[in-house]
Design a protein around this nucleic acid. Structure first.
Lengths: 203, 203
DNA sequence: TTGTCGGTCGATTGATCGATCGATTACCCG
DNA sequence: CGGGTAATCGATCGATCAATCGACCGACAA
Protein backbone atom coordinates (compact mmCIF):
# COMPACT_ATOMS: atom_id res chain seq x y z
CA UNK A 1 0.00 0.00 0.00
CA UNK A 2 0.90 3.66 0.12
CA UNK A 3 3.27 3.73 -2.83
CA UNK A 4 5.89 4.17 -0.21
CA UNK A 5 9.61 3.77 -0.62
CA UNK A 6 10.27 4.56 -4.23
CA UNK A 7 13.81 4.19 -5.41
CA UNK A 8 15.54 7.19 -3.92
CA UNK A 9 13.10 7.90 -1.12
CA UNK A 10 10.31 10.28 -0.36
CA UNK A 11 10.71 14.02 0.14
CA UNK A 12 12.30 15.30 3.33
CA UNK A 13 9.92 18.27 3.67
CA UNK A 14 8.26 16.19 6.34
CA UNK A 15 6.92 19.39 7.87
CA UNK A 16 4.95 20.96 5.04
CA UNK A 17 4.59 17.72 3.21
CA UNK A 18 2.85 15.95 6.04
CA UNK A 19 0.60 18.95 6.61
CA UNK A 20 -0.55 18.95 3.01
CA UNK A 21 -1.05 15.23 3.12
CA UNK A 22 -3.31 15.63 6.10
CA UNK A 23 -5.28 18.31 4.29
CA UNK A 24 -5.73 16.05 1.29
CA UNK A 25 -7.04 13.28 3.51
CA UNK A 26 -9.54 15.64 5.13
CA UNK A 27 -10.79 16.97 1.84
CA UNK A 28 -11.00 13.48 0.41
CA UNK A 29 -13.12 12.35 3.34
CA UNK A 30 -15.44 15.26 2.74
CA UNK A 31 -15.70 14.62 -0.98
CA UNK A 32 -16.28 10.90 -0.51
CA UNK A 33 -18.86 11.63 2.17
CA UNK A 34 -20.95 13.90 -0.01
CA UNK A 35 -20.39 12.33 -3.41
CA UNK A 36 -19.42 8.76 -2.61
CA UNK A 37 -16.15 7.08 -3.40
CA UNK A 38 -16.86 6.34 -7.05
CA UNK A 39 -18.50 9.61 -7.92
CA UNK A 40 -16.03 11.73 -6.02
CA UNK A 41 -13.25 12.49 -8.47
CA UNK A 42 -9.56 12.99 -7.84
CA UNK A 43 -9.92 16.19 -9.81
CA UNK A 44 -12.35 17.63 -7.29
CA UNK A 45 -10.17 16.65 -4.36
CA UNK A 46 -7.07 18.11 -5.98
CA UNK A 47 -8.71 21.37 -6.88
CA UNK A 48 -10.16 21.89 -3.43
CA UNK A 49 -6.68 21.52 -2.03
CA UNK A 50 -5.35 23.89 -4.68
CA UNK A 51 -3.52 21.36 -6.82
CA UNK A 52 -3.97 19.98 -10.27
CA UNK A 53 -5.32 16.48 -10.61
CA UNK A 54 -1.97 15.10 -11.68
CA UNK A 55 -0.04 16.72 -8.84
CA UNK A 56 -2.24 14.92 -6.37
CA UNK A 57 -0.37 11.78 -7.26
CA UNK A 58 2.83 13.16 -5.78
CA UNK A 59 1.19 12.89 -2.39
CA UNK A 60 -0.92 9.82 -2.84
CA UNK A 61 -0.32 6.49 -4.52
CA UNK A 62 -3.86 5.97 -5.73
CA UNK A 63 -7.45 6.86 -5.09
CA UNK A 64 -7.85 3.61 -3.21
CA UNK A 65 -5.02 4.58 -0.92
CA UNK A 66 -6.96 7.64 0.11
CA UNK A 67 -9.86 5.46 1.07
CA UNK A 68 -7.57 3.10 2.89
CA UNK A 69 -6.07 5.80 5.03
CA UNK A 70 -9.46 7.20 5.91
CA UNK A 71 -10.55 3.76 7.01
CA UNK A 72 -7.41 3.26 9.04
CA UNK A 73 -8.05 6.51 10.83
CA UNK A 74 -11.52 5.38 11.81
CA UNK A 75 -10.13 2.05 12.86
CA UNK A 76 -7.66 3.75 15.16
CA UNK A 77 -10.35 6.05 16.56
CA UNK A 78 -12.53 3.07 17.37
CA UNK A 79 -9.97 1.23 19.39
CA UNK A 80 -8.61 4.37 20.96
CA UNK A 81 -12.05 5.32 22.24
CA UNK A 82 -12.57 1.85 23.62
CA UNK A 83 -9.15 1.71 25.24
CA UNK A 84 -9.68 5.05 26.92
CA UNK A 85 -13.09 4.06 28.17
CA UNK A 86 -11.91 0.80 29.65
CA UNK A 87 -8.63 2.05 31.06
CA UNK A 88 -10.24 3.54 34.13
CA UNK A 89 -11.82 0.28 35.20
CA UNK A 90 -14.65 0.34 37.69
CA UNK A 91 -18.03 -1.41 37.76
CA UNK A 92 -19.39 -2.69 34.42
CA UNK A 93 -22.10 -0.08 34.19
CA UNK A 94 -19.62 2.75 34.53
CA UNK A 95 -17.45 1.26 31.82
CA UNK A 96 -20.38 0.91 29.48
CA UNK A 97 -21.29 4.51 30.27
CA UNK A 98 -17.84 5.64 29.30
CA UNK A 99 -17.82 3.53 26.15
CA UNK A 100 -20.97 5.29 25.02
CA UNK A 101 -19.49 8.68 25.87
CA UNK A 102 -16.27 7.96 24.03
CA UNK A 103 -17.85 6.37 20.99
CA UNK A 104 -20.46 9.06 20.49
CA UNK A 105 -17.85 11.71 21.13
CA UNK A 106 -15.49 10.36 18.51
CA UNK A 107 -18.27 9.84 16.03
CA UNK A 108 -19.71 13.30 16.38
CA UNK A 109 -16.27 14.81 16.07
CA UNK A 110 -15.61 13.03 12.77
CA UNK A 111 -19.06 12.52 11.33
CA UNK A 112 -17.94 12.64 7.73
CA UNK A 113 -15.00 10.32 8.19
CA UNK A 114 -17.11 7.77 10.02
CA UNK A 115 -19.84 8.10 7.45
CA UNK A 116 -17.43 7.36 4.63
CA UNK A 117 -16.15 4.38 6.53
CA UNK A 118 -19.57 2.78 6.73
CA UNK A 119 -21.02 3.76 3.42
CA UNK A 120 -17.94 3.00 1.39
CA UNK A 121 -16.58 0.01 3.18
CA UNK A 122 -16.46 -1.92 -0.10
CA UNK A 123 -13.96 0.52 -1.57
CA UNK A 124 -11.28 -0.19 0.98
CA UNK A 125 -8.30 -2.04 -0.54
CA UNK A 126 -9.01 -5.75 0.01
CA UNK A 127 -5.91 -6.47 2.02
CA UNK A 128 -6.55 -3.65 4.43
CA UNK A 129 -10.27 -4.37 4.53
CA UNK A 130 -9.54 -7.80 5.93
CA UNK A 131 -7.50 -6.40 8.78
CA UNK A 132 -10.06 -3.72 9.54
CA UNK A 133 -12.94 -6.16 9.52
CA UNK A 134 -11.04 -8.25 12.03
CA UNK A 135 -10.44 -5.20 14.21
CA UNK A 136 -14.09 -4.30 14.05
CA UNK A 137 -15.07 -7.76 15.13
CA UNK A 138 -12.73 -7.73 18.05
CA UNK A 139 -14.12 -4.32 18.92
CA UNK A 140 -17.63 -5.73 18.92
CA UNK A 141 -16.54 -8.62 21.08
CA UNK A 142 -15.01 -6.33 23.64
CA UNK A 143 -18.19 -4.29 23.90
CA UNK A 144 -20.16 -7.50 24.10
CA UNK A 145 -18.08 -8.62 27.05
CA UNK A 146 -18.88 -5.45 28.95
CA UNK A 147 -22.56 -5.71 28.11
CA UNK A 148 -22.47 -9.27 29.40
CA UNK A 149 -21.08 -8.08 32.70
CA UNK A 150 -23.76 -5.41 32.96
CA UNK A 151 -26.38 -8.08 32.37
CA UNK A 152 -24.84 -10.24 35.06
CA UNK A 153 -24.99 -7.27 37.40
CA UNK A 154 -28.71 -7.06 36.76
CA UNK A 155 -28.58 -3.70 35.08
CA UNK A 156 -29.65 -4.90 31.68
CA UNK A 157 -32.25 -7.57 30.90
CA UNK A 158 -30.60 -10.96 31.26
CA UNK A 159 -33.14 -12.94 29.30
CA UNK A 160 -31.88 -11.85 25.89
CA UNK A 161 -28.71 -12.78 23.99
CA UNK A 162 -25.83 -10.53 24.96
CA UNK A 163 -24.91 -10.19 21.32
CA UNK A 164 -28.28 -8.67 20.46
CA UNK A 165 -28.23 -6.12 23.25
CA UNK A 166 -24.68 -5.22 22.33
CA UNK A 167 -25.51 -4.82 18.66
CA UNK A 168 -28.50 -2.72 19.61
CA UNK A 169 -26.32 -0.34 21.58
CA UNK A 170 -23.65 -0.22 18.90
CA UNK A 171 -26.28 0.39 16.26
CA UNK A 172 -27.93 3.17 18.19
CA UNK A 173 -24.58 4.90 18.41
CA UNK A 174 -23.36 4.18 14.92
CA UNK A 175 -26.52 5.40 13.33
CA UNK A 176 -25.88 8.83 14.72
CA UNK A 177 -23.83 9.58 11.64
CA UNK A 178 -26.98 9.37 9.53
CA UNK A 179 -28.98 12.12 11.17
CA UNK A 180 -26.65 14.15 13.40
CA UNK A 181 -26.24 17.86 12.71
CA UNK A 182 -23.91 19.73 15.00
CA UNK A 183 -26.22 22.71 15.45
CA UNK A 184 -28.94 20.76 17.19
CA UNK A 185 -27.36 18.73 19.94
CA UNK A 186 -23.97 18.31 21.55
CA UNK A 187 -22.26 14.96 21.74
CA UNK A 188 -22.90 14.97 25.48
CA UNK A 189 -26.63 15.38 25.03
CA UNK A 190 -26.75 12.56 22.55
CA UNK A 191 -24.68 10.25 24.71
CA UNK A 192 -26.77 11.10 27.78
CA UNK A 193 -29.97 10.27 25.92
CA UNK A 194 -28.58 6.96 24.72
CA UNK A 195 -27.45 6.03 28.20
CA UNK A 196 -30.84 6.91 29.60
CA UNK A 197 -32.55 4.94 26.86
CA UNK A 198 -30.78 1.74 27.81
CA UNK A 199 -31.43 2.32 31.47
CA UNK A 200 -28.01 3.54 32.46
CA UNK A 201 -27.33 6.48 34.71
CA UNK A 202 -27.36 9.81 32.87
CA UNK A 203 -24.06 11.53 32.18
CA UNK B 1 -38.68 8.77 -14.44
CA UNK B 2 -39.62 5.24 -15.44
CA UNK B 3 -39.48 5.76 -19.18
CA UNK B 4 -43.15 5.06 -19.01
CA UNK B 5 -45.73 5.92 -21.60
CA UNK B 6 -43.75 5.98 -24.79
CA UNK B 7 -45.60 6.91 -27.94
CA UNK B 8 -47.52 3.80 -28.79
CA UNK B 9 -47.45 2.19 -25.37
CA UNK B 10 -45.68 -0.55 -23.52
CA UNK B 11 -45.94 -4.24 -24.30
CA UNK B 12 -49.13 -6.02 -23.37
CA UNK B 13 -47.44 -9.17 -22.01
CA UNK B 14 -48.25 -7.72 -18.61
CA UNK B 15 -48.10 -11.22 -17.20
CA UNK B 16 -44.65 -12.43 -18.16
CA UNK B 17 -43.33 -8.93 -18.64
CA UNK B 18 -44.12 -7.80 -15.12
CA UNK B 19 -42.71 -11.00 -13.72
CA UNK B 20 -39.40 -10.46 -15.48
CA UNK B 21 -39.36 -6.86 -14.38
CA UNK B 22 -39.74 -7.93 -10.79
CA UNK B 23 -36.89 -10.39 -11.19
CA UNK B 24 -34.67 -7.68 -12.62
CA UNK B 25 -35.40 -5.43 -9.67
CA UNK B 26 -34.54 -8.20 -7.23
CA UNK B 27 -31.28 -9.03 -8.94
CA UNK B 28 -30.39 -5.36 -9.20
CA UNK B 29 -30.91 -4.90 -5.48
CA UNK B 30 -28.63 -7.82 -4.82
CA UNK B 31 -25.94 -6.58 -7.19
CA UNK B 32 -26.09 -3.06 -5.81
CA UNK B 33 -25.98 -4.41 -2.28
CA UNK B 34 -22.82 -6.41 -2.80
CA UNK B 35 -21.00 -4.23 -5.32
CA UNK B 36 -22.50 -0.79 -4.81
CA UNK B 37 -24.47 1.22 -7.32
CA UNK B 38 -21.52 2.52 -9.29
CA UNK B 39 -19.51 -0.67 -9.37
CA UNK B 40 -22.46 -2.91 -10.05
CA UNK B 41 -22.78 -3.04 -13.83
CA UNK B 42 -25.85 -3.38 -15.97
CA UNK B 43 -24.02 -6.22 -17.68
CA UNK B 44 -23.89 -8.23 -14.46
CA UNK B 45 -27.54 -7.61 -13.71
CA UNK B 46 -28.58 -8.55 -17.21
CA UNK B 47 -26.56 -11.74 -17.30
CA UNK B 48 -27.81 -12.93 -13.96
CA UNK B 49 -31.33 -12.57 -15.28
CA UNK B 50 -30.32 -14.34 -18.47
CA UNK B 51 -30.38 -11.38 -20.81
CA UNK B 52 -27.79 -9.42 -22.70
CA UNK B 53 -26.81 -6.03 -21.41
CA UNK B 54 -28.61 -4.27 -24.22
CA UNK B 55 -31.83 -6.21 -23.82
CA UNK B 56 -32.06 -5.01 -20.24
CA UNK B 57 -33.01 -1.64 -21.63
CA UNK B 58 -36.25 -3.02 -23.00
CA UNK B 59 -37.42 -3.46 -19.44
CA UNK B 60 -35.79 -0.49 -17.77
CA UNK B 61 -35.29 3.11 -18.79
CA UNK B 62 -31.93 3.59 -17.15
CA UNK B 63 -29.69 2.34 -14.40
CA UNK B 64 -30.88 5.18 -12.22
CA UNK B 65 -34.45 4.02 -12.69
CA UNK B 66 -33.52 0.71 -11.16
CA UNK B 67 -32.18 2.48 -8.12
CA UNK B 68 -35.26 4.65 -7.99
CA UNK B 69 -37.64 1.76 -7.95
CA UNK B 70 -35.67 -0.03 -5.25
CA UNK B 71 -35.85 3.09 -3.12
CA UNK B 72 -39.57 3.46 -3.73
CA UNK B 73 -40.08 -0.08 -2.58
CA UNK B 74 -38.28 0.63 0.68
CA UNK B 75 -40.23 3.83 1.04
CA UNK B 76 -43.49 1.94 0.72
CA UNK B 77 -42.32 -0.75 3.15
CA UNK B 78 -41.49 1.90 5.73
CA UNK B 79 -44.85 3.55 5.74
CA UNK B 80 -46.68 0.28 5.40
CA UNK B 81 -44.98 -1.08 8.49
CA UNK B 82 -45.79 2.05 10.42
CA UNK B 83 -49.40 2.16 9.26
CA UNK B 84 -49.93 -1.45 10.26
CA UNK B 85 -48.36 -0.92 13.64
CA UNK B 86 -50.45 2.11 14.45
CA UNK B 87 -53.72 0.89 12.98
CA UNK B 88 -54.54 -1.23 16.01
CA UNK B 89 -54.33 1.69 18.42
CA UNK B 90 -53.98 1.01 22.13
CA UNK B 91 -51.67 2.51 24.75
CA UNK B 92 -48.49 4.25 23.53
CA UNK B 93 -46.18 1.56 24.76
CA UNK B 94 -48.04 -1.13 22.83
CA UNK B 95 -47.89 0.94 19.69
CA UNK B 96 -44.17 1.46 20.07
CA UNK B 97 -43.80 -2.26 20.64
CA UNK B 98 -45.57 -2.97 17.41
CA UNK B 99 -43.58 -0.38 15.51
CA UNK B 100 -40.40 -2.13 16.55
CA UNK B 101 -41.82 -5.49 15.58
CA UNK B 102 -42.96 -4.26 12.20
CA UNK B 103 -39.85 -2.30 11.38
CA UNK B 104 -37.43 -5.04 12.35
CA UNK B 105 -39.58 -7.59 10.58
CA UNK B 106 -39.61 -5.65 7.33
CA UNK B 107 -35.93 -4.90 7.55
CA UNK B 108 -34.89 -8.48 8.18
CA UNK B 109 -37.10 -9.68 5.36
CA UNK B 110 -35.47 -7.33 2.86
CA UNK B 111 -32.01 -6.81 4.24
CA UNK B 112 -30.35 -6.26 0.89
CA UNK B 113 -32.96 -3.86 -0.39
CA UNK B 114 -32.85 -1.79 2.79
CA UNK B 115 -29.08 -1.86 2.78
CA UNK B 116 -28.98 -0.52 -0.75
CA UNK B 117 -31.41 2.19 0.23
CA UNK B 118 -29.16 3.52 2.98
CA UNK B 119 -25.77 3.00 1.43
CA UNK B 120 -26.68 4.28 -1.99
CA UNK B 121 -29.11 7.01 -1.12
CA UNK B 122 -27.09 9.48 -3.20
CA UNK B 123 -27.73 7.51 -6.37
CA UNK B 124 -31.47 7.95 -6.27
CA UNK B 125 -32.72 10.23 -9.05
CA UNK B 126 -32.82 13.75 -7.53
CA UNK B 127 -36.51 14.33 -8.09
CA UNK B 128 -37.48 11.10 -6.42
CA UNK B 129 -34.89 11.53 -3.70
CA UNK B 130 -36.60 14.71 -2.61
CA UNK B 131 -39.93 13.01 -2.22
CA UNK B 132 -38.42 10.06 -0.38
CA UNK B 133 -36.46 12.26 1.99
CA UNK B 134 -39.70 14.03 2.84
CA UNK B 135 -41.41 10.72 3.46
CA UNK B 136 -38.59 9.61 5.68
CA UNK B 137 -38.83 12.76 7.70
CA UNK B 138 -42.53 12.41 8.19
CA UNK B 139 -41.89 8.81 9.17
CA UNK B 140 -39.40 9.97 11.79
CA UNK B 141 -41.88 12.52 13.09
CA UNK B 142 -44.60 9.94 13.49
CA UNK B 143 -42.30 7.66 15.48
CA UNK B 144 -41.22 10.65 17.50
CA UNK B 145 -44.81 11.40 18.40
CA UNK B 146 -45.32 7.92 19.75
CA UNK B 147 -42.07 8.07 21.70
CA UNK B 148 -43.25 11.33 23.18
CA UNK B 149 -46.44 9.71 24.36
CA UNK B 150 -44.49 6.87 25.91
CA UNK B 151 -42.38 9.41 27.74
CA UNK B 152 -45.46 11.19 28.97
CA UNK B 153 -46.76 7.89 30.23
CA UNK B 154 -43.62 7.53 32.29
CA UNK B 155 -42.34 4.50 30.42
CA UNK B 156 -39.31 6.18 28.93
CA UNK B 157 -37.06 8.76 30.60
CA UNK B 158 -38.73 12.15 30.30
CA UNK B 159 -35.67 14.25 30.97
CA UNK B 160 -34.20 13.83 27.51
CA UNK B 161 -35.28 15.28 24.17
CA UNK B 162 -37.89 13.11 22.50
CA UNK B 163 -36.05 13.45 19.25
CA UNK B 164 -32.90 11.87 20.66
CA UNK B 165 -34.68 8.90 22.17
CA UNK B 166 -36.58 8.42 18.95
CA UNK B 167 -33.44 8.58 16.84
CA UNK B 168 -31.77 6.16 19.19
CA UNK B 169 -34.53 3.62 18.72
CA UNK B 170 -34.65 4.14 14.96
CA UNK B 171 -30.89 3.81 14.76
CA UNK B 172 -30.80 0.65 16.78
CA UNK B 173 -33.29 -0.88 14.39
CA UNK B 174 -31.84 0.52 11.17
CA UNK B 175 -28.35 -0.63 11.99
CA UNK B 176 -29.57 -4.22 11.96
CA UNK B 177 -28.91 -4.29 8.24
CA UNK B 178 -25.21 -3.92 8.91
CA UNK B 179 -24.67 -7.04 10.96
CA UNK B 180 -27.74 -9.24 10.64
CA UNK B 181 -27.33 -12.76 9.24
CA UNK B 182 -30.45 -14.84 8.96
CA UNK B 183 -28.89 -17.99 10.36
CA UNK B 184 -28.22 -16.58 13.78
CA UNK B 185 -31.38 -14.92 15.01
CA UNK B 186 -34.96 -14.55 13.92
CA UNK B 187 -36.58 -11.17 13.47
CA UNK B 188 -38.66 -11.86 16.55
CA UNK B 189 -35.61 -12.44 18.70
CA UNK B 190 -34.01 -9.25 17.51
CA UNK B 191 -37.15 -7.21 18.03
CA UNK B 192 -37.65 -8.69 21.49
CA UNK B 193 -34.11 -7.79 22.49
CA UNK B 194 -34.53 -4.22 21.24
CA UNK B 195 -37.79 -3.81 23.10
CA UNK B 196 -36.22 -5.14 26.28
CA UNK B 197 -33.23 -2.88 25.82
CA UNK B 198 -35.39 0.23 25.85
CA UNK B 199 -37.36 -1.00 28.80
CA UNK B 200 -40.44 -2.13 26.97
CA UNK B 201 -42.31 -5.33 27.62
CA UNK B 202 -40.86 -8.30 25.76
CA UNK B 203 -42.76 -9.57 22.71
C1' DT C 1 -47.38 -17.21 -47.34
C1' DT C 2 -46.58 -12.85 -45.81
C1' DG C 3 -46.52 -8.79 -42.81
C1' DT C 4 -46.17 -7.02 -38.21
C1' DC C 5 -44.17 -6.58 -33.93
C1' DG C 6 -42.23 -7.88 -29.49
C1' DG C 7 -37.98 -9.57 -27.88
C1' DT C 8 -33.35 -10.44 -28.49
C1' DC C 9 -28.52 -9.70 -29.61
C1' DG C 10 -23.72 -7.82 -31.09
C1' DA C 11 -21.41 -3.91 -32.21
C1' DT C 12 -20.56 0.67 -31.42
C1' DT C 13 -20.50 5.16 -29.48
C1' DG C 14 -19.62 8.68 -26.24
C1' DA C 15 -18.32 10.22 -22.06
C1' DT C 16 -15.91 9.89 -17.81
C1' DC C 17 -11.83 9.45 -15.12
C1' DG C 18 -7.78 7.27 -12.87
C1' DA C 19 -3.19 7.17 -13.72
C1' DT C 20 1.22 8.16 -16.34
C1' DC C 21 4.67 10.99 -18.79
C1' DG C 22 7.57 14.68 -20.18
C1' DA C 23 8.55 19.24 -19.60
C1' DT C 24 8.81 23.42 -16.78
C1' DT C 25 9.50 26.11 -12.73
C1' DA C 26 11.05 27.12 -7.90
C1' DC C 27 14.04 26.18 -4.24
C1' DC C 28 18.07 24.81 -1.58
C1' DC C 29 22.97 23.68 -0.92
C1' DG C 30 27.58 24.13 -2.15
C1' DC D 1 26.06 31.23 -9.57
C1' DG D 2 24.92 26.47 -10.92
C1' DG D 3 23.61 21.61 -10.28
C1' DG D 4 20.20 18.73 -8.29
C1' DT D 5 15.91 17.65 -6.59
C1' DA D 6 11.14 18.60 -5.21
C1' DA D 7 6.84 20.27 -6.86
C1' DT D 8 3.98 21.52 -10.27
C1' DC D 9 1.35 21.35 -14.61
C1' DG D 10 -0.92 20.07 -19.27
C1' DA D 11 -1.54 16.57 -22.28
C1' DT D 12 -2.59 12.09 -23.02
C1' DC D 13 -3.46 7.32 -22.58
C1' DG D 14 -6.29 3.41 -21.45
C1' DA D 15 -9.99 1.31 -19.49
C1' DT D 16 -14.61 1.03 -18.18
C1' DC D 17 -19.50 1.31 -19.01
C1' DA D 18 -24.14 3.19 -19.73
C1' DA D 19 -26.84 3.76 -23.46
C1' DT D 20 -28.03 3.55 -28.58
C1' DC D 21 -28.55 1.47 -33.13
C1' DG D 22 -29.55 -1.65 -36.66
C1' DA D 23 -30.29 -6.27 -37.74
C1' DC D 24 -32.29 -10.82 -36.89
C1' DC D 25 -35.68 -14.23 -35.25
C1' DG D 26 -39.95 -16.28 -34.18
C1' DA D 27 -44.86 -16.12 -33.06
C1' DC D 28 -49.19 -15.06 -34.45
C1' DA D 29 -52.80 -13.08 -37.50
C1' DA D 30 -54.79 -12.22 -41.98
Amino acid sequence: MTADAGTSGRPKQTAEWERKRREILDVAADVFFTSGFQKGTTKEIAERVGLSQSTLYHYVGSKEDLMGEIAEQVDRDFTQALDDAEALGGPPRDRLDRIIDAFVGALVLNRRTFGVYWKEFRSIPPELAKKIAADEQSFARRVEAVVGEVQAAGQLPADHPTRLLSQGILGMMSWTHWWYRSDEFTAEQVAAAYKALVGLSPG
